[in-house]
Amino acid sequence: MGTWGAGNFDSDTAADHLSILTERLVSEVEEAMSGDPVELEPDEYWGVAVPCNLEILHVLASRRWVGVVLPEAATVEAWKATYLAVWDATIDGLEPAPEHRTQRRAALERTFDQLVEAIRIS
């Protein structure tokens, strides 16, 4: 169709761009999840970047733009189990304040769960 509106994301080219962007975010998470679990620890790059990627994917999914490519809900649920297992096993070694530990874990759970919900309703 080419262009279907005046918005920044209302064209085939924009949809192509979004698919490239979202596929990259998903690929990064896939690689992190299949790599060395040490890289997912809370003080490591992917331990921080994975939830960031998931949050960005959720924001894009919530806009319902054409071209947003998301993983299957079951995949995100498996990522959640893997990620939180690493987080739970290593967070206490960083000696977080108990309140921060509780709040951060809730934020992480919410990050995975909101993406799963967005996938299911899309």
Rank of each mutant, 00 (worst) to 15 (best):
R104H: 15
A97I: 11
P71K: 07
H58Q: 12
T111A: 07
T82F: 00
R101T: 06
I91W: 05
R101V: 04
D92A: 02
Q114T: 13
V69S: 15
L60A: 09
A106Y: 03
K80E: 10
L84A: 02
R64M: 11
Q103Y: 08
P71H: 07
A107S: 11
V86P: 00
E77Y: 00
W79Y: 11
R101K: 15
A73V: 02
E72G: 01
V59K: 08
V59Q: 09
E109N: 14
T90D: 03
V76K: 03
W87A: 01
A78C: 00
A85L: 05
D92M: 03
G67K: 07
W79A: 07
H58Y: 13
R104C: 08
V59F: 06
V86I: 02
T82N: 11
D88N: 04
R64H: 12
L108V: 07
S62E: 11
H100R: 14
W87N: 04
E77T: 05
E72W: 03
P98T: 09
R104D: 14
V69C: 13
V76D: 01
V59E: 12
G67P: 07
I91P: 00
L108M: 10
Q114V: 05
R64N: 12
D88L: 01
A61C: 08
H100D: 15
E109H: 14
L94G: 12
E77S: 10
V66I: 10
W65T: 09
R110W: 02
K80Q: 14
V86F: 02
L94W: 14
P96N: 09
Q103T: 12
L70E: 00
F112M: 01
L84P: 06
A106F: 03
D88A: 00
W79K: 10
A97W: 14
D88G: 00
T102M: 15
L84N: 04
E77W: 03
R110Y: 08
A74S: 11
L108T: 08
I91D: 04
T90P: 01
E95V: 15
E99W: 13
L70K: 01
E99V: 14
A78Q: 08
W79E: 11
G93V: 01
A61Y: 02
T111K: 07
H100I: 13
K80T: 05
A107P: 00
L94Q: 15
W65S: 13
D88Y: 00
W87I: 03
A89Q: 07
K80R: 13
A81C: 00
P98S: 05
W65L: 10
E99L: 15
R63M: 06
H58A: 10
T102Q: 15
A81Q: 10
